[in-house]
Design a protein around this nucleic acid. Structure first.
Length: 249
DNA sequence: GCTGACTTTCCTGATT
DNA sequence: TAATCAGGAAAGTCAG
């Protein structure tokens, strides 16, 4: 699983990301990082050390691992802004992180926070019996099963799943959506334009508007994924929506 | 290349 | 009046 975090693959992504800066220009050579000496291809240094103690190289190795593992688009990441050590990485605000990591930011940030709190077992125990980490939501469930689920699930999620995951991830939600009745699956769009913007970022479509997004949501009435609620900006998960119930995650 | 599912875009009209 | 909702229609995207 960790084999994919190789220098060579990372180099290619780095070059695509920023052709003006080479790997060594950005992060130096492996010789610059003594801590790297004891790692092996299957057991990188960053997997055994708290993120705060990562070197610049470890930070980039971790980014590469995530890009490889989750098939994230490395082109959206500003690698030059991740030319920092682990302590600096951990001290980044969420806003700074998301800004630097582009559309991959929310996932990378989420992964980092969980590694900080729970260690690399967050990855290595994937697929095995695990206690809940935090925000027992679908995104967490996805990340628990990184070895089991096809990676494209992360980027091909449907609109209703995107909405559901936002509702279940308060730190990513930023008050854009809120539950009106969690038990009934009724939720309200608080910041319609922000929601459309986020969805647009996810789909790499800067022309997305709430009007278009709401049209897509209304199509879910037909399929039973959403049910109509006769109130403005209020929707309800239908019988064919799954993963939003607290006790069924 | 075809098909189907899903999403986007545009539109008109109604409602708040 | 503006924002939002409702839904038809058509086109675009993408995976199988």
């Amino acid at each position: 699983m960790l084999d994919s975090a190789t220098h060579s693959t990372f180099l290619s992504n780095t070059m695509v990301c920023d052709p003006l800066m080479s790997w060594t220009e950005l992060f130096g050579t492996e010789d610059d990082y003594p801590s790297f000496d004891h790692q092996t291809d299957s057991d990188p240094f960053w997997t055994s050390v708290h993120p705060e103690y990562w070197s610049k190289h470890n930070v980039c190795e971790w980014l590469q691992f995530c890009c490889d593992q989750y098939k994230l688009d490395a082109n959206c990441i500003s690698f030059s802004r991740f030319n920092i050590n682990g302590l600096q990485l951990c001290n980044m605000t969420q806003e700074e992180f998301l800004d630097a990591a582009g559309t991959c930011g929310e996932y990378l940030y989420f992964i980092l926070q969980n590694i900080r709190m729970h260690g690399i077992s967050f990855f290595t125990d994937a697929g095995e019996t695990k206690p809940p980490i935090k925000n027992s939501n679908v995104l967490v469930r996805y990340l628990f099963n990184t070895c089991l689920l096809p990676v494209q699930d992360l980027q091909s999620s449907h609109l209703w799943e995107f909405v559901r995951d936002l509702l279940l991830s308060p730190e990513e939600n930023s008050g854009i959506l809120e539950w009106e009745d969690r038990g009934q699956g009724i939720f309200r769009v608080v910041k319609s334009e922000a929601l459309a913007k986020m969805w647009g970022q996810r789909k790499k479509n800067d022309r997305m508007t709430y009007e278009k997004l709401s049209r897509a949501l209304r199509y879910y009435y037909k399929t039973g994924i959403l049910e109509r609620v006769d109130r403005r900006l209020v929707y309800k998960f239908g019988k064919n929506a799954h993963g939003w119930q607290e006790n069924k995650i």
